[in-house]
Design a protein around this nucleic acid. Structure first.
Length: 820
DNA sequence: AGCACGCCGACT
DNA sequence: GTCGGCGTGCTC
């Protein structure tokens, strides 16, 4: 018997709709509807997009509607994609469709829009317009607008008449029968840019004069093109002011050719530098052999590769990927943020040339789609990219590598808040592939997995060159203050700077993130100036002498008196990159300093430009936040200074110490990469904190043990699993009561299941208000992962059925990486 | 989520 | 008597 019904998920991402709906397959579409294809279905009284997840012979539902339209003749999702999305939805407690849409590149999404068009003749519309003018001005205005445009999307109309009741006006006009509404599904991802090209520029010149006389616009187009040879159509028309028809005429005459723009420009795959294949050290060789045999075995095999900075992990990755290719399989390599990993891109492209695809956030939608298609078509069998590349449409994966696996950028900060490491695990299992997690400072969770024998442990404890790790000096700032030094630099750091710069070497100064850097605080009453919308300390910007909120962008003038107690002693505490820069110029007047922070790296490519500048020796000192910590390799840098380790240690987060340890280890790795030995100076008020102490001695295991003991004592991950739920909304009372209600439901369910779980909160989130939205959160916690998930998932369902949370939004975070 | 249905207050 | 508020319930 034929399979006449499709099981469909509708695109709407709501807990109540997160299930299968059955649709009939109309005669015209039998045999064409396949699992994994997208369709248009009538749902309620509108059309919506749907995803076909199964085909069945019968459906036990009373009323069944038919599928309206098929969007993909060839299915977009493989059964494995659907399986992966199921896993994600289940693990991250998100709607299935939300998970599925993660797998889909943005460029392939269809947008659901309503198109409004004139139904009858213009004359009919005009006569109605005249009578409406006196009865219903709003409807008249809308009609006038539609008349001018002849057709427009509803969304555009709403935008044009924002604030007015467009819906009613439209309804009126539809009732009069002057306009029609039609839903349309359009691909929005890639506008195909066309370029105009001159066909034969030699022979044209003689014709041009004659043509220019007869058709001046066409002449203008030609002469413009003669200068430029090739120009995007949109630009060309704008420059000449000629209509599209003139261009079309030239195309018809065979003088101009239109060609689709290639958008691959930004993805540089081949480097002109000759490839250096490094010999493997014994340690590297041992590691490679184990990974290699895992690839050959074709079984799921996860490894943690713990290699000190400079241990040559990249070369092992390259060989392992090569190995997978030799087996006829493909490979996925994830890096934290591609902008910071350009060295990785160039090494991979040197080795694999056109066979790699690069996918990251710096690409436009179209560029990303192009890379995606290359993978989809099997043109690239190696994918290198950031978090989302874990979903790349590769077939038959032999190995997945996650470099710097502890990095927090692997966790998506929007729903579904997945962690690429966990998704990679699920994919590696599906493909029976090897999985290599590489890091000098593995996440506590990952290292614990090796101890539990869930991951194989691969260790490289020596650098490729025998050069020792840099010496790390910890400066006790309490003592410094006692000795009367109230400046930014301790004596030790200042002397080290003098030394380093005196030798013509370079230094990096590292600060913690800027939101916590420079704020105004009253030295008498302790009042600090905070954002009225976001309730976080405003950051002082010397430029324009402004205070700015780094969440919503709110700005105000600097105050000179404390608004609470009136004391004139309100001033800056802590320091930002700008202050360090100023201090540097004060102490070393003829020095050139490069400052790098979120402000001056926002623009595309600005980041790399500053790094290149520093690399070429144009500046002696690089001052920056987190971004200078990662992956940089400048041989002439012999000194790294950490201005204050304390900001990191004291963040309100259970992972603060782990992060600080990782960060310090990483910045320390930036020193002494060339011939001369490196030195690291860390300033802190808490020299006894293990995050500082263990980083000083490069002792990962020591830190791991002490931190694990602390986590066990306080019941934090990895000994407990956490699910955090964030509730946001305009109305604080609604947000608060919602959080309390959900908390109550979870508590009750914990008791019913006699679970060991508990609830923290509900409480206002550490950032209690962002962009006018109040934020409350609660954390469910249990040592039993399955039970925790079961209880929270059931509670969420119950809550969403029993409480109408109008005006509030709910975001679930399974395994939150932080609590802020 | 989005929309219709439906039951109560202030207006032509 | 009518318009329109938003509580309730459904969507194959």
């Amino acid at each position: 018997m034929e399979k006449l019904f499709a099981e469909v998920y509708v695109e709407l991402k709501h807990r109540r709709l997160d299930r299968i709906f059955h649709y009939g397959i109309p005669p015209g579409l039998t045999d064409r509807i396949k699992v994994g294809a997208r369709v248009v279905v009538p749902f309620g009284n509108k059309l919506h997009q749907g995803y076909v997840v199964n085909l069945v012979k019968r459906a036990d539902v009373e009323k069944i509607k038919n599928i309206k339209e098929l969007l993909d003749e060839r299915p977009l999702f493989t059964p494995q994609d659907i399986e992966l999305a199921r896993w994600m939805a289940d693990y991250y407690l998100c709607p299935f469709v939300a998970a599925l849409e993660c797998i889909l590149p943005a460029g392939l999404k269809y947008e659901n829009s309503t198109v409004i068009a004139l139904l009858g003749s213009d004359e009919e519309a005009m006569s109605l317009l005249n009578s409406l003018k006196f009865m219903d001005t709003e409807a008249a205005e809308v009609l006038q607008f539609v008349l001018d445009k002849s057709s427009i999307t509803r969304a555009n109309l709403e935008k044009k008449f924002s604030g007015k009741n467009v819906a009613r006006a439209i309804e009126t006009l539809v009732d009069y029968g002057v306009i029609s509404m039609k839903q349309q599904f359009r691909m929005t991802g890639f506008r195909r840019e066309m370029s105009a090209i001159l066909v034969r520029d030699e022979e044209i010149s003689s014709d041009t004069q004659a043509l220019a006389n007869r058709a001046p616009k066409q002449g203008q187009l030609l002469s413009t093109l003669m200068d430029k040879k090739r120009l995007p159509v949109s630009l060309l028309l704008k420059q000449t002011g000629a209509p599209k028809s003139s261009l079309n005429a030239l195309v018809a005459k065979g003088l101009v050719r239109l060609e689709e723009d290639t958008v691959a420009g930004k993805v540089i795959r081949q480097s002109d530098r000759p490839e250096v294949i490094h010999e493997l050290t014994d340690k590297q060789e041992q590691v490679f052999r184990r990974v290699s045999s895992a690839i050959r075995d074709g079984k799921y095999a996860p490894f943690l590769l713990h290699g000190v900075t400079g241990s040559g992990k990249t070369e092992v990755y390259l060989r392992a990927v090569q190995r997978a290719l030799e087996e006829g399989k493909s490979a996925v390599v994830l890096v934290p943020e591609i902008a910071l990993a350009s060295q990785m891109v160039s090494r991979f492209s040197q080795r694999f040339g056109e066979g790699i695809a690069v996918i990251h956030s710096g690409l436009s939608r179209a560029e990303r789609l192009q890379e995606w298609m290359r993978v989809h078509r099997g043109q690239a069998k190696v994918v290198l990219g950031a978090r989302s590349a874990v979903f790349a449409p590769v077939k038959d994966i032999g190995i997945i590598i996650i470099d710097e696996e502890h990095e927090s950028s692997y966790k998506q900060d929007q729903v579904p808040k997945y962690h690429a490491r966990e998704v990679a695990k699920a994919r590696a299992r599906q493909h029976e592939a090897a999985l290599v997690l590489g890091s000098a400072t593995p996440a506590l969770e990952s290292y614990l997995e090796t101890q539990k024998r869930n991951y194989g442990l691969l260790t490289i404890d020596q650098r490729v060159t025998t050069r020792p790790l840099p010496v790390v000096a910890v400066v006790d700032m309490r003592q410094e203050r006692r000795q009367g030094n109230s400046g930014i630099f301790s004596t030790a750091l200042f002397q080290s700077l003098e030394n380093c710069l005196g030798n013509g070497e370079q230094a990096i100064l590292f600060l913690n993130r800027r939101g916590f850097a420079s704020f105004l605080i009253c030295d008498k009453c302790g009042f600090s100036i905070r954002c009225p919308h976001c309730d976080i300390a405003l950051t002082h910007h010397t430029k324009g002498n402004k205070l700015m909120c780094h969440y919503c962008g709110y700005q105000q003038q600097v105050v000179t008196q404390c608004p609470r107690c009136g004391s004139p002693g309100i001033g800056g505490v802590g320091c930002g990159t700008q202050q360090v820069e100023e201090e540097m110029y004060r102490r070393f007047p003829d020095l050139s300093v490069i400052r790098m922070d979120v402000d001056n790296t926002r623009k595309q490519g600005a980041h790399q430009r500053l790094l290149d500048k520093f690399g070429s020796g144009e500046g002696s000192v690089l001052i920056g936040t987190q971004m200078v910590a990662k992956g940089l390799d400048f041989p002439n840098v012999t000194l790294v200074g950490v201005i204050s380790a304390d900001t990191g240690i004291n963040l309100p987060d259970f992972r603060a110490w782990e992060r600080t340890f990782q960060l310090l280890t990483q910045v320390a790795g930036r020193a002494g990469r060339g011939q001369r030995p490196g030195r690291v100076v860390v300033q802190t008020y808490q020299p006894d904190n293990p995050a500082v102490g263990r980083a000083r001695t490069h002792d990962y295991l020591g830190f791991y043990r002490s931190e694990l003991a602390r986590r066990r004592q306080f019941g934090y991950p990895p000994f407990c699993r956490l699910i955090r739920v964030l509730i946001t909304g305009q109305d604080e009372v609604k947000v608060k009561t919602g959080a309390e209600a959900l908390s109550k439901v979870i508590k009750k369910n914990f008791l019913l299941h006699s679970a060991a779980g508990e609830i923290l909160g509900p409480a206002p989130a550490p950032l209690a208000k962002i962009k006018g939205k109040h934020r409350w959160h609660l954390v469910a916690k249990s040592p039993d992962a399955e039970e925790l998930k079961g209880v929270v998932s059931a509670s969420l369902r119950q809550y969403s059925l029993e409480f109408d949370q109008q005006g509030t939004n709910l975001a679930v975070d399974v395994d939150p990486s932080g609590m802020i």
